[in-house]
Amino acid sequence: MEKKLLHVYPQRCTACRNCEIACSFAHPIDGKAGVARIKAFGDKEGRVGHNQIVVCMQCEDAACVSACPANALWRNPDTGAIYLLEERCIRCHSCVAACPFGNMRPQADEFPSKCDVCGGDPACVKFCPANALEYK
């Protein structure tokens, strides 16, 4: 079966940042909102169709995976997405330093956070009112 991918359509993005909020609440820490793993950038000049969505691309040869000394980053065979196995993570934040795209985000005393497509049912997609995100 073809694996689904998180598709972004920045042309449609209104930079309302609902995706960020959905993501935070989908990945809470101690019941509180966590760090969003997706980021919507509103165009500086406010031009329509020029906003940008930055989210993990689940790179084939991922910098985070090769940087991790603890083998804590794994590819989920069902979704094809890379996720962080917290039990193995030593929180050295090497992955955060290694990701060239800024998609591995630190969380103060916690484990770093990265997009895991919510295990195959991404919350951001459901909350985007502009259909700028699709999972297909």
């Binding site: 950038f41 020029h50 940008q52 940087a67 090497s94 330093a97 795209f101 800024g102 630190p106």
Partner: peptide
Amino acid sequence: WLSERTGMKVEEYFVCVKCKAAQTARTYE
């Protein structure tokens, strides 16, 4: 230490997450 293990250049690590994400957005643009 990371650079030795991954082959990435040392300087590549010296951009913070926020700036890296912003840079990614600019690249997309």
